[in-house]
Structures are given as structure tokens and as C-alpha cells.
């Protein structure tokens, strides 16, 4: 049951949602937002593709297996934890390699470091997990549909 309206809209909406998800992820650095919500938004983009074009198209759009994406995210989070551990001796301690603090205690530089990496990890874990579960569910549904048709 493919709908022309849905698949046309999806083609326009999907990039928008993905950009929004990156924006929300980026905003979460200092304001409400962040990896979890960003990852969920990105997952909705692929869910939309899955609804409009079918499971195979969604898998192609995602390119990597959901498990690998989740594993990559978990790896990012672990690396960010170990990074702080190796640098300062405290696991998960924030490391800001591009920030310097002057005599008055003001901070200068690029706020980019292990915490960003951790959030990126969350983004990918959420994206991978949600897509993985969604695809698995859809797989059962489509197999069931096959059985009923027989």
C-alpha cells in the first residue's frame, strides 16, 4: 500500500528532519536538546522512509546496520570516558582540548571536547537502537503478511 502523497512528502521531509535532528543535537550543547532527542528525531526520519517506501528502502537509506551504528555510538561514549580518565585520572571527566582559561578565570576557545563526543555517542546509540527495534518489528509484520497471503 504505497501512497504517492506520503512518499513525495517523505522525500522532502526526510532531509529536513535530519537537519533538524543535527540542529537539536548541536543546540543541546548548552541549551535544551542533545544527543537523545536528536537521535530520536533522526530515527523518526528513517521511520518515515520505512512507512512510505518499505523496509528495504529504509535499510538502504540508513546504509549501515542499526547494530553497527549503536556499537559505534557506544564506542564513542566509552572513548570519551576513557579520554577523561587518561587525561585527568577521573573516568568521564570533561576534557576541553581547545579551551584556555586566562588569569581572570574567563574561558577562551572552542568548546569542543570529550563531552561533545559523549553526546555524539548517545545520538548514534539512540538512532541505532530505535531503528534496530523498528526494523525487527517491521520484519515480523511483513513476514506475517506473507503468511496470510499464502
Amino acid at each position: 500500500m504505497k501512497s504517492l502523497i506520503l512518499s513525495t512528502c517523505t522525500r522532502m521531509l526526510m532531509p529536513l528532519i535530519l537537519i533538524l535532528s543535527v540542529f537539536v543535537f548541536w543546540r543541546g550543547h548548552n541549551e535544551p536538546g542533545g544527543g537523545f532527542i536528536g537521535g530520536l528525531l533522526a530515527a523518526t526520519a528513517f521511520a518515515l522512509v520505512e512507512k512510505a517506501e518499505g523496509l528495504e528502502a529504509a535499510k538502504r537509506a540508513l546504509r549501515f546496520r542499526p547494530q553497527s551504528i549503536a556499537a559505534f555510538g557506544l564506542g564513542c561514549a566509552l572513548v570519551s570516558g576513557v579520554w577523561g580518565g587518561l587525561q585527568y585520572g577521573y573516568f568521564l571527566k570533561g576534557v576541553w582540548p581547545f579551551i584556555t582559561i586566562d588569569a581572570e578565570g574567563n574561558k577562551h576557545g572552542l568548546p569542543f571536547g570529550s563531552i561533545f563526543l559523549f553526546d555524539l555517542g548517545v545520538y548514534f546509540v539512540v538512532l541505532g537502537t530505535v531503528c534496530g527495534i523498528l526494523f525487527a518489528l517491521e520484519d515480523v509484520v511483513s513476514r506475517e503478511a506473507d503468511v496470510e497471503e499464502d
Binding site: S68, F72, G75, G81, G89, F91
Partner: peptide
């Protein structure tokens, strides 16, 4: 860091095992 390795090692192994899926 000694205690945190007890979390990092199994999680890290899980990540590598996931990447070696097939």
C-alpha cells in the same frame, strides 16, 4: 581508574563483538 576499567572492558568488548557481527 582501576574500577572503571571493569565497565569499560566488557562494554568495549561488546562494541567490538557487535562490529564483528557476521
Amino acid at each position: 581508574m582501576l574500577l572503571f576499567w571493569a565497565l569499560v572492558i566488557p562494554f568495549g568488548t561488546a562494541v567490538l563483538a557487535l562490529l564483528a557481527w557476521r
